[in-house]
């Protein structure tokens, strides 16, 4: 009798030990997964916050400093990133959403849908510098100038697959019952898609678009030889909207790349400040997008 009780006690001890060990292991793994994120956030803040605080508002408006001159700001780069990413979004959101609608709503059983999905996945894995090469060949060589549009086109190549795949996923999550209900009330296909399916999937779609934008905003490689860089704001006053097509344009990511490689301390500081601003922009836009769409539900 005593032996049985003894054996049972040992067994329970082993079980508890395994339980405890595994719980510790998975907790540790999830903490480790968060380490890169937080170390980046902390280190960028540590290195960049000083410059942003001493610069104050002028960081957001002034031109980048020449070597060894104190002060200056990130004005053209911030505006440039906003412009280039907006162009990329303007090109890729309609294409991405419409191809997702085709894939999820109207392509049942079509072999072409398989291939579209396949190549969208391939496109999603294309190195970003290749997107730059594509836009360089297509737009920069044709127009014979670097431009915001060339930069935006390069970014849109990266954004289209992300938006397409995320939107298709979101549309597939809309229950089939809801489409049936819409058709049962006498909706046309257009009404079913635009008034029932898309609004239902909207929060998820917006999340996908935000992810695509966040990714594009941080890209450097596709911009280096499409948008290039500029120390100045786009000359809209003299060129009008044409400035989008015939002028190189600054961006935060290329500014970071340029200034991080120079031996001048003031420009290096500016690169850290730009990193912090870029991180902040991506973070804030994700938070806004998420809260704005959550309220709708």
């Amino acid at each position: 009798m005593g032996e049985v009780v003894w054996a049972r006690a040992v067994l329970m001890l082993i079980r508890k030990g395994v339980d405890c060990g595994l719980t510790t292991a998975v907790t540790l793994a999830s903490v480790i997964a968060l380490v890169p994120l937080f170390s980046i956030l902390l280190y960028v803040t540590y290195k960049g916050l000083g410059t942003v605080l001493t610069g104050g508002l002028s960081i957001f408006t002034e031109l980048p400093p020449p070597p060894m001159v104190e002060g200056g700001g990130l004005g053209p780069a911030i505006v440039g990133t906003l412009i280039v990413v907006s162009i990329g979004a303007a090109i890729s959101i309609p294409i991405g959403i419409m191809s997702a609608i085709y894939l999820s709503e109207f392509s049942a059983g079509e072999p072409i849908a398989y291939w579209i999905r396949f190549f969208t996945n391939v496109l999603a894995g294309v190195p970003s510098i290749i997107a730059g090469v594509f836009s360089f060949g297509l737009i920069v060589l044709t127009t014979k100038t670097f431009s915001a549009v060339a930069g935006g086109a390069a970014l849109s190549v990266l954004m289209v697959p992300v938006i397409t795949l995320a939107t298709e996923e979101a549309l597939r999550l809309v229950p089939q019952d809801m489409r049936q209900a819409a058709y049962g009330l006498g909706s046309t296909s257009l009404q079913t898609v635009t008034k029932v399916v898309l609004p239902t999937a909207l929060p998820t779609i917006v999340t996908g678009i935000t992810l695509a934008i966040a990714r594009a905003a941080g890209e450097t490689a596709p911009l280096i030889f499409t948008a290039l860089f500029s120390q100045f704001y786009l000359p809209f006053d003299t060129e009008g909207p044409g400035a989008l097509f015939n002028q190189p344009i600054a961006s935060l990511s290329v500014l970071i790349y340029n200034f991080a490689l120079v031996p001048f301390e003031n420009q290096q500081k500016m690169a850290w400040a730009a990193s912090l601003v870029l991180l902040g922009m991506v973070l804030i836009s994700s938070i806004i997008a998420r809260t704005a769409t959550r309220r709708n539900m």
Partner: peptide, 29 residues
Amino acid sequence: LRRQIGMVFQKPNPFAKTIYENIAYGPRI
């Protein structure tokens, strides 16, 4: 035809809209 012959399905399938908009959808389209 489907506007003249309506349908109620096996599983309740309201739209992800408000109660008011659920009703107003059909008349509106």
